[in-house]
Write a protein that binds this DNA or RNA. Structure first.
Lengths: 250, 250
DNA sequence: TCAAAAGTGTTCGTAGTACACCCATGT
DNA sequence: ACATGGGTGTACTACGAACACTTTTGA
């Protein structure tokens, strides 16, 4: 009733102590890379969308997302980057963006913990070497994961799929230069269904998302015409199809 | 390096004390309603997208978003609803969803405060009576606002505009029943540009977002044919145009 | 019967899909 | 020369924007 409003400096002591008695804020990151999944036992050796996970110390047999508690005077996106670099040795995240906050009081046992989550993308040609206890998993073949991390990964998958269709977000999944067929495979892996390479080029060209570099690549293992190499016009997120409908007049 | 991962129970004491020494989590809500703005001084007495603000205690002359610190074992969306109800007497938020987390260490002076923000929508026919020190402001005519609240409001505006074009989110802005012309005004107010009523009906009908109720309304002040009344098919958020492009085959 | 507002129908442009056909290279 | 993969061109479809025209009411 008193118009305390949102002014944080007007809060009284009882709330501050509430914090001190057990509110924890953790940052979790869903790091994606399109790569050949680890368990290439036989046939399907194609590229797949993979997530970065590490063995959980306290819950044997379960895997969890990289992250940790908030500390220091850093923006949370900086915290997310630092934690992934420290625990996973992954330092070249090409794009990082916020996902939801997960705040269910029962999401983890013990101290009430709120998770602020992020999605990070690593280019497919980025040479990552993981430390012990860390691994990539195809999103379609996840191991048992801790707490609500499966739900968080699912949120990230859907976010990525949605943004592929109306932004240039794939710049952070593809190498700096690439033949269109490779980009098509990346889209296919991230979306989960095939994409026509021909039309992909047309769409991305019209929107000026992708430009030709003029150079050509090497022809593949079994002959064929050498491909033209393309590159993304921007290296940061851009919305390329803002209004699906209800566009402003003119 | 040690695979602490994201397991919160594996964190050590230093981080917990870090929390205790001054990490605060606040929840802020951007509550929108399409209504006639307060300062109807003359001509433009049309409906506008308005935001709910209250006078700030510590920063005289500035207005701020409703909110407060996190306390108790509640999900943050419940906290947001409770805080708006307690401080603004607004209890019928038809839709509430998360916006971003704002975590710049310098966003408010004093104790480091992370803001988890929400957007709430109130139906245009909802009869709200605000307490002293609270008021609606047209988003195009905001008063001086505290801290980074202007940025938060801007984020909410853009989120709302985007979702109007690919979801049924307008169900939470419109009355339960309405003539199409009224819905058109609501879209116009929220988007900031005129919307063709004819085409709006066609689009929303095809997507089965809006259905005819069979009933007709009263004709307006200056004659005219009485309008058919429509209603939204759902009362919760639904994505109606998932893939702007790159649809799955078939 | 005239103005005002609602509803219907028509035309047009454009983006995206599907697919056939042509080109360049290695073996 | 032929298989293999890359690139170009051409319908076809569908959705949405714009706008003219008809219908129904109150004054």
């Amino acid at each position: 009733m008193p118009a305390a409003g949102s002014d944080p400096s007007s809060s009284d002591g009882s709330q501050a102590s509430d914090n001190a008695t057990g509110l924890r804020v953790e940052v979790l990151s869903v790091v994606f890379q399109v790569r050949t999944p680890p368990s290439a036992d036989g046939c399907d050796v194609h590229a797949a969308l993979c997530v970065l996970l590490s063995r959980t110390a306290t819950e044997p047999g379960r895997w969890s997302l990289p992250g940790g508690d908030v500390a220091g005077d850093e923006t949370l996106s900086v915290v997310a980057r630092r934690l992934v670099a420290d625990t996973m040795d992954v330092r070249d995240i090409a794009h990082l963006e916020q996902l939801s906050v997960f705040s269910d009081p029962a999401r983890v046992p013990g101290v009430r913990t709120i998770a602020s989550t992020y999605m990070g993308l690593v280019r497919s040609d980025s040479p990552v070497t993981l430390p012990e206890g860390a691994a990539w998993f195809a999103v379609d073949a996840l191991p048992p994961v801790a707490f609500d991390h499966a739900e968080i990964i699912d949120t990230a998958r859907h976010r990525l799929a949605a943004k592929l269709s109306y932004t240039n977000i794939a710049f952070a999944l593809a190498p700096k230069q690439f033949p269109m067929s490779e980009l098509s495979e990346i889209y296919c892996a991230a979306l989960g269904y095939p994409v026509d390479t021909t039309n992909l080029l047309r769409i991305l060209s019209r929107r000026a998302v992708v430009v030709s570099t003029g150079t050509v690549g090497k022809t593949g293992r079994s002959g064929g015409r050498p491909p033209a190499l393309y590159a993304f016009a921007d290296n940061e997120l851009r919305v390329t199809d803002e209004f699906a409908t209800l566009r402003p007049p003119m």
